[in-house]
């Protein structure tokens, strides 16, 4: 068997899993089971939130290692479910390596994605329906919808101008949200600045980082849990900073 090919395939699957926002234990376990299914006795897999290392020793005692650096990524549940399904199938069927590699490589292109318009609608709808939860009326709902759309536009299309730094991106989006809601309420469309701003900020809130941190603790990956908790706290401070800046800017006019 060609162990280098096998290693590449397992590393690629682990990389796709990490990129879809899977938990560390899921990435490590999937890659380990996959290598095990292809007949390796003691495959070693190590992952932290932005790095994946897979190392095996061939039956002749020759060590082979592959490392993948995982760039900043979002959450893609469809990709996660498909990777998981593919990993189970490969473990049961263990097809020839070239076929397996082709199946893994075909994954990212085969994922159905929502169109930009539909995603924008999602960014608008979520704050709009949060407004009543926080005690807002119909006019606040309409305001939140527009602010959500603006934040969604910043997140989806503003990447080139804002850059990939997540702290700065969150701060800018939060500032836009606070400024717009202040302006809309001042213009007479909304009734409460607080409700509209909070509803819009819910799109940026670090719920994903918090949930992931919790799941890492549960799985015993303390290092990853700490790094994700730090991420959640940083994002929360970015939201607070941005909102403060946005309101100060809105107060000037």
């Amino acid at each position: 068997m060609d162990y280098e090919k096998l290693l590449n395939m397992a590393a690629e699957l682990g990389y796709q899993l990490m990129y879809s926002g899977a938990e560390i234990y899921r990435v490590e376990e999937s890659a380990r089971r996959l290598l095990h299914a292809y007949g390796l006795e003691n495959p070693e897999v190590f992952a932290i939130p932005n790095c994946l290392i897979v190392s095996v020793a061939t039956p002749e005692g020759h060590p082979v290692t592959r490392m993948r650096r995982v760039p900043a990524h979002g959450t893609d549940i469809e990709l996660l479910e498909r990777c998981n399904g593919l990993c189970r199938r490969l473990c049961v069927e263990t097809p020839p390596l070239d076929e397996a590699q082709a199946a893994v490589d075909a994954l990212p292109e085969a994922i159905p994605r929502h169109s930009i318009r539909l995603m924008l609608l999602g960014y608008g709808a979520a704050p709009a329906f949060f407004a009543p939860l926080f005690g807002g009326g119909l006019r606040d709902t309409a305001c939140s919808f527009f602010c959500g759309l603006a934040v969604g536009l910043c997140l989806l299309c503003g990447g080139k101008f804002i850059g990939a730094n997540s702290f700065f991106r969150t701060a800018v989006c939060s500032a836009v949200a606070a400024f717009l809601s202040l302006t809309l309420v001042e213009a007479g469309l909304g009734t409460s600045v607080d409700i509209v701003t909070i509803s819009t900020l819910m799109v940026l809130v670090p719920g994903v980082a918090l949930t992931n941190a919790m799941r890492e603790i549960m799985a015993g990956d303390t290092f990853s849990a700490l790094s994700r908790t730090a991420d959640a706290i940083l994002v929360a401070s970015a939201i607070a900073l941005g909102a403060a800046a946005g309101q100060a800017l809105g107060g000037l006019f």
Binding site: T75, I77, E78, H114, A125, A126
Partner: peptide, 15 residues
């Protein structure tokens, strides 16, 4: 409202 807000979020997480 919570139901609809969550459905809105599923659009952004590609569910």
């Amino acid at each position: 409202c919570a139901f609809l807000a969550c459905v809105g979020f599923t659009l952004t997480f590609n569910i």
